[in-house]
Design a protein around this nucleic acid. Structure first.
Lengths: 149, 149
DNA sequence: CTCCTATAGTTAGCATGATAACTATATCCG
DNA sequence: CGGATATAGTTATCATGCTAACTATAGGAG
């Protein structure tokens, strides 16, 4: 994450980047700004999820399973692929969601190595509970970012 | 972090957000896009830092001490403040940097609770080693982001 | 048919974010 | 001056990101 509170001034970046060929100061500042804004938003979202005894990772894990068109389950590897995180991260979060009865995990009849993940009714309900606040925070974050520009 | 690979389509977000009062679909999509772009950039930076046996947190810790005007040291609490992370995170990273002889930690003569953190010559050298690549990645990330828009 | 390579997922360990609870020290008020 | 409150930093614990190494299973080639 990136929470550096005072992003460097243009002058400070210029002082550094003059020594580095082909570096545009505006790009550097925009990149730092992007990372900070996103990290602050993620922190705010995590706090919101924590109030619901949840996290963004768990939430998104339910989302990618729930929204898959024409299917009611995903393989664990597909979950990792859609979340774009490493497999051990998915192994752990699936175990935790299973313990909380929000998903169920079944071995695949096609391939004994694979596990099929589907949402339980409680998982659907948890998604429905959390979704409105999530959208509100995303909406508000961008509204005030646009007002600040 | 937020690495969701396929951000929802406008249609999909509309399907959800119609149920939530006052939520602008464009804002939601922009927020998701912001988080993903920043998370990918942070991931790329962490990979760059890992190649140098380092991390962005350690790097920024050295940076905030090095760039403080008119001072050659910061208190640990000031480091936490400037990085905008919790104090235990700073306690740990300072210990790790001290073990690597990149900083030195002294008790404050003013206040026995406080610790004064300053860079060693090796710390300065590490910063100089890493800085160019850091700027390059930030620059390139924003150049291609702008090209994609 | 057997063996080798590839793949799905797990385990171990590390670093970084957080909160809660703690210790040691400083300061202020009565 | 002493006690209560506040502050600086530490320790413990949990969750999430990663890489490396592992186990079990699948598939393909000879």
């Amino acid at each position: 994450m990136f929470f550096l509170k005072n992003l460097p001034s243009r002058q400070m970046v210029e002082g550094y980047s003059d020594r580095f060929e082909g570096v545009d100061v505006g790009n550097v500042m925009d990149a730092l700004d992007l990372m900070r804004k996103a990290s602050l938003l993620i922190r705010e979202l995590e706090a919101y999820f924590a109030d619901h005894g949840f996290s963004q990772l768990r939430f998104l894990t339910l989302v990618v399973i729930d929204r898959e068109p024409d299917r009611s389950s995903l393989m664990a590897g597909e979950v990792a692929d859609r979340l774009d995180v490493s497999k051990p991260v998915v192994t752990r979060v699936l175990r935790s969601l299973e313990s909380a009865n929000l998903i169920s995990i079944a071995s695949s009849s096609d391939d004994a190595r694979s596990r099929e993940i589907s949402l339980t009714a409680a998982g659907q309900a948890k998604l429905a509970e959390i979704m409105p606040g999530y959208f509100s925070i995303l909406n508000r974050a961008m509204s005030s970012a646009k007002a600040d520009s």
